[in-house]
Design a protein around this nucleic acid. Sequence first.
DNA 1: TTGTAAGCGTTATCAG
DNA 2: CTGATAACGCTTACAA
Lengths: 338, 338
Amino acid sequence: MKNGKYSISDVAEMLGVSKSTVSRAINGNSGVGDELRKKVLDLVDEIGYKPNTIAQSLSRGRVNIVALILGDIRNPFYADLAFNIQRILNSHGYMVMVFNSEYDVQREIEFLKLTIQFNFAGLILITAQTEIVEDMLHSMDVPMVLVNRILPSYTGDSVLTDNFQAGYMAVMHLLELGHKHIGFVRGPGVSSASSQRFEGYRQALRNFSLPFNEEYVYESDLKMETGITLARNFVKDLKVRPSAMVVVNDMTAIGFIDGCRENGLSIPEDLSIVSFDDIEFSAMKGIELTTISQHVDKMSEHAARLMLKQLEEKDAKPERVILEPTLVIRKTTGPCKE
Amino acid sequence: MKNGKYSISDVAEMLGVSKSTVSRAINGNSGVGDELRKKVLDLVDEIGYKPNTIAQSLSRGRVNIVALILGDIRNPFYADLAFNIQRILNSHGYMVMVFNSEYDVQREIEFLKLTIQFNFAGLILITAQTEIVEDMLHSMDVPMVLVNRILPSYTGDSVLTDNFQAGYMAVMHLLELGHKHIGFVRGPGVSSASSQRFEGYRQALRNFSLPFNEEYVYESDLKMETGITLARNFVKDLKVRPSAMVVVNDMTAIGFIDGCRENGLSIPEDLSIVSFDDIEFSAMKGIELTTISQHVDKMSEHAARLMLKQLEEKDAKPERVILEPTLVIRKTTGPCKE
DNA sequence: TTGTAAGCGTTATCAG
DNA sequence: CTGATAACGCTTACAA
């Protein structure tokens, strides 16, 4: 017994039995007599012995930690996902380690390398980007779930919203309100979610012969602060402004709206805005975003379920779960007045 | 070499040297010739060998993970703290594992037990509560930093805002605006930050002979949703309402304001509100909280610094860092009209 | 400078 | 049903 903590050898010695017996007893494995098992368990309970997880991991060849890589935990959408996934996996005996890539490919690759070094039990990626990552992923033989982003050649488990449809829906809603000139704030190019929303938007524009204007397309790194900056440019640089904007995520939209109001634009009177995610804040008085829900609860449940499936069945078939987006109409969109 | 990964033995064998030599070389320890060291490093680099962190940890007796226990990662105040702390510790070679206690003592104790089992390198507690926890903490011989909460008998490293002063400041601000009847939404009783803010509030009331009314005191679990519920009761149950409220944190305040407006109260015309934290959202148009900043950046820097100090110096003296709160006046407080 | 070997705390294999 | 004993991959005295 070192450092105030008991080891399995201590327990074995105290009982005059072998380590194997103790190991079997505490792990609920067969091969120990009922009487002896009870004796072991009683002592373990009494002295408060806990097996050393590191040693277990080394022996078993993997650690019971699932790595979760996401862009930025400060974004409520990701925070919700992380929270829910963590809760579910915890309740099944797994730990979750959250990494913030800060939307940076280099950092993401670093974390992927860590996954190898640590022998993590599984890997959940909420922000998988570029071919480099894709190559690494292919060479990694570990349970893996992709959430909300898709990699072209990836065929494993994944759960995502139908982002094309989401983008399409956004435009349809604006169209019904009479808007014809509709701009778009996209996310980083490497985000498939963003690209697909953009595609849906383009398609809707085409289907209804609405004009597409390159000048009305902006790019955000998904942060609120960036939304504010973008809005300032939007207000100042454009001689003729669109009457509506589709914005890649709620955080950017909240910032964007803030920037617009700061510069004298009224929302939705002067400009209608639809975004995506439906984070908790978007329902608040004073915000009240019209947004397209990604159903973060379902998304996290599926992600956790798929991970557990891979963790617990050796050769489970890969699933691709596709969630339907839902339009939530609040107060940032209104009829077009022209 | 198993599972596509090289072990130190593989490297040693390929070079015809011993494992110890490889170990010394890659860890930058003395006792290897320059030439041989270079040979080792070159091969390691070429084949992309990475030491197995678990095996290292078992051997060294601790794993390079710092555990960070907080109430709820979905609260932006905590998310900011976690993000910053993680970033700093990562850059010094430590991993951070975030646990959501969900403000529940039982869960917190579970996580503490995990710290023992895992032999985590350090422990950062942003939500330390009750005597049970206190006892456990005392018996744990691991680098430890308490953030934003204080335990009576704890003498180790800690960083916190002067919450008493913060509570006092909140009242002073309202007093200057002419308010006399001031209520309070407190946090859970186990939160020392909340209790001290409450004490500061009480003291200010006493110092200026303002009336204290038990009916005007509510309790929140720090969540936005709860703020909404509280506000509904506040509006409906009270025949005579105070003209101002001090609310324990921004998230509750945002919900509270929402609930008030939903029930026809105007903020700040009918009711002034001051809260604490100054999360990013509080600056948004449509929210614009008057709030007391806890300087989350400084707070995280100190927390990380104190942890690193303990991690890297064997017998560093404990420090208690106390941050001055700052009042940020925005638009949820206004003059009292009576 | 380099190698040998013991140990870190478990689990798993194989005898008894 | 139970006990030795060998891994797991690395670090670290101690020898050479």
